[in-house]
Design a binder for these strands. Sequence first.
DNA 1: AAAATAGTGTCTGTGAGACAATATCTT
DNA 2: AAGATATTGTCTCACAGACACTATTTT
Lengths: 246, 246
Amino acid sequence: MKADRRRRRADHSPMAVAVDVAVFTIEKKRLKILLVKRRNDPFRGHWALPGGFVDVDESLEDAAARELLEETGLELSSHLRQLAAYGDPGRDPRMRVITVAYTSIARDLDSISAGSDATAVCRASVQRILESADASTGFRLAFDHKKIIEDAVKNLRLQLRSAPIASEFLPPKFTIAELRGVYESVWGVQLDPANFRRKVLSVESFLIPTGERIPPGREGGRPAELYRVNSSASSRFTLGHQIPES
Amino acid sequence: MKADRRRRRADHSPMAVAVDVAVFTIEKKRLKILLVKRRNDPFRGHWALPGGFVDVDESLEDAAARELLEETGLELSSHLRQLAAYGDPGRDPRMRVITVAYTSIARDLDSISAGSDATAVCRASVQRILESADASTGFRLAFDHKKIIEDAVKNLRLQLRSAPIASEFLPPKFTIAELRGVYESVWGVQLDPANFRRKVLSVESFLIPTGERIPPGREGGRPAELYRVNSSASSRFTLGHQIPES
DNA sequence: AAAATAGTGTCTGTGAGACAATATCTT
DNA sequence: AAGATATTGTCTCACAGACACTATTTT
């Protein structure tokens, strides 16, 4: 009977469910992603997204947060967003593993440190990972994590275009130039300061002026006003074609 | 040791991986979704998305296509698109089940018939499902399939706005009015025929005129020209604010 | 003063959307 | 002819983007 076949399969099948997290940050105007160096086989010594197996009684999101904390010491300030599930047979040489990938954004990754399953952590340049055509150049990535990172970057750009989440890269109070810098870093382009300012200020219920100005002490220039995001309202916007296609 | 704990967990944990498919179609100008009536517990007699457990050696997508065929007899003409993974503990009373949901579009669902695990199949009105606040009104849906359907509809609208996939609802040759009807059905609104026509014809590499005209025999009116999609090029477009937010 | 950055003003092209007008069919 | 649908034309308004200009700081 089919029902019997199924019950057997569900109880005994050597499948496992894992989670992986792609944490983005911006450092020195470059988009970076958090990676760990694997201590154990398979793919020992390769770089990988933080992640691991899901416990039986925890939610996928809890598992992602827990594994991230265990492997890197990072406690997230912003939300986890589900990206996709990856489950090709053979993506893990040990057994059938389905992994659910999440993305998140961190203001800074200064406090990270390698956990038990990792020999190192790093903030890798997303540009370098995307440009390295093969494992020969740049990072040697474990499993199908190159593909996951590619999808995560695409998704990040999609999100950034249509949702006011760029501020998650920034401190609670920030200038419009800093906000613009997020977009410039993620797409690797230059944006017109005047038009960008007009655009983001025209979005309803997005930015709230604090009245404060940024403390000077830089290269010069008029001090910019500090803004914060309106956390109550959820505003929608689209950035124009200043920003390339995807 | 942690590694040991993990290996035990991965080998013996009573988790299962399933797939579910949300197949959309348009019938009588209404958006419909394919549901099956469950023959077995849990949720016997409830309506559910077609789906089932993944075999150890098949891909998630293959599993989705297989389960759809087994339960409804439907062989898909268009692609499966991954929607999301759903894995809350307790979403299945038997054991921990992670399900990966897929969406697809069918030209018509005339050839479906209930398979072994289902006592019936139906094409349910998406509007009715979304409007029914509770299980009391309308359909009694199994598991968290109400939530999955809500997400699937949101995703369908998102896709339809930014990708030229509306033609998947239609036969190979179709009129612009039929294409407009897809959008009107999915959002439940009326669009301006003149502006819609201009918009879709202005998209590069999207519609190709066949020179043929639709065979008359309707209520009257000038016969419309038949178009087909340019299957080689992948064009991007956005429909304006004729179409509501979500 | 010179350089640098913040912020404002203005112009132009494009495109969405409203709506009128024309074309071609059925009844 | 009347009604219905397809298709074309025209006008207006909003806005993205280019770019000149003003404001306020550091060196």
